[in-house]
């Protein structure tokens, strides 16, 4: 059994990891298949009689103020949130890990310069930068939004990775690897990277939750996902004025956000444990 399959097997064996995997798989399935079988999320039904209907036959999760089916909107929004969240978190983690590894393994000027740059970037609030760019750039396509979120979210990971790398550099096995003639790149990828996998994974999973919430805030300001495309965060914010009278319009999207972030975190935690052979 290869180590990777062994890792997944370990994740499955733990109850928390299993729950997370199942939840994530269900959500992914929902996001993939849902939009194909459910009605159009932007279709406004009978505005006079079909608005703010509670959950019931015909509309499993009710309708919102413009009599659009809440379930359809959730499923479409989930798909978008998952794509944006996972893609940007992966990209951010990759970027941060690369910078951190380079800085950590090559001490001296390279390390200092890179980390000072990261410090300076960390001082600028992420939301501020996003607002600035999105306010100037009119209609941002989704891939650009993903890139933007990734480019503003890698700083923390790079510091984590750099710290771990510096610590590992002093470890004997790194010296031993050098002694057998391994090159710098090989050491970085083969020896250092697997050992920093744990903090990277945790940072990545936290990043997914961050991005989903960020996107909700941006949508509220009119800068994120444009209507009528549904977004989970946008649904929660749009429905706050009817929160008391029609709670299904904000509770269900909110629950889905929570569930998504939770399951990603659970899987990330379990994976981290699985990849650390000492705790197997």
């Amino acid at each position: 059994m290869t180590p990777r399959r062994a890792a997944l097997h370990t994740v499955w064996r733990r109850p928390a990891g299993r729950a997370g995997l199942i939840a994530l798989a269900l959500l992914a399935l929902l996001a993939l298949i849902g939009p194909l079988v459910l009605p159009d999320p932007t279709a406004q039904g009978d505005l006079l009689n079909g608005a703010l209907l509670p959950p019931g036959p015909g509309h499993l999760l009710g309708t919102d103020q413009l009599s659009r089916d809440v379930l359809s909107r959730i499923v479409t929004g989930l798909r978008l949130s998952l794509i944006i969240g996972l893609a940007s978190a992966c990209l951010a983690v990759a970027l941060g890990a690369a910078v951190g590894l380079i800085a950590g393994s090559r001490a001296g000027m390279v390390d200092t310069v890179l980390m000072r740059i990261v410090d300076a970037l960390l001082a600028i609030p992420r939301l501020f930068v996003l607002l600035l760019v999105l306010a100037v750039w009119d209609r941002v396509p989704i891939p650009a939004l993903v890139l933007l979120l990734a480019l503003t979210g890698w700083y923390g990971t790079s510091r984590l990775v750099r710290a771990e790398t510096v610590r590992l550099r002093g470890e004997d096995f790194v010296r031993a690897a050098e002694a057998l003639g391994a090159g710098r790149l090989r050491i970085a990828l083969h020896h250092l990277l697997p050992n920093v996998a744990a903090p990277i994974l945790v940072a990545g999973t936290l990043g997914v939750g961050d991005v989903i919430l960020l996107e909700a805030g941006l949508t509220y300001l009119g800068l994120g996902i444009r209507p009528p495309t549904p977004s989970l965060g946008g649904m929660v914010l749009d429905s706050r004025s009817v929160f008391v009278t029609a709670p299904w319009t904000s509770i269900f999207p909110g629950l889905v956000i929570v569930l998504t972030v939770l399951s990603v975190n659970l899987v990330g935690d379990a994976l981290r444990d699985a990849l650390d052979p000492r705790s197997a």
């Binding site: 279709a43 406004q44 413009l66 209609r139 444009r226 209507p227 009528p228």
Partner: peptide, 19 residues
């Protein structure tokens, strides 16, 4: 805005809501 966008869509008019 959202209602207008939807009703115009049925006419074949593409309205982009810019909040």
């Amino acid at each position: 805005a959202l209602v207008v966008q939807e009703q115009w869509r049925q006419l074949g008019v593409k309205a982009e809501v810019v909040p």
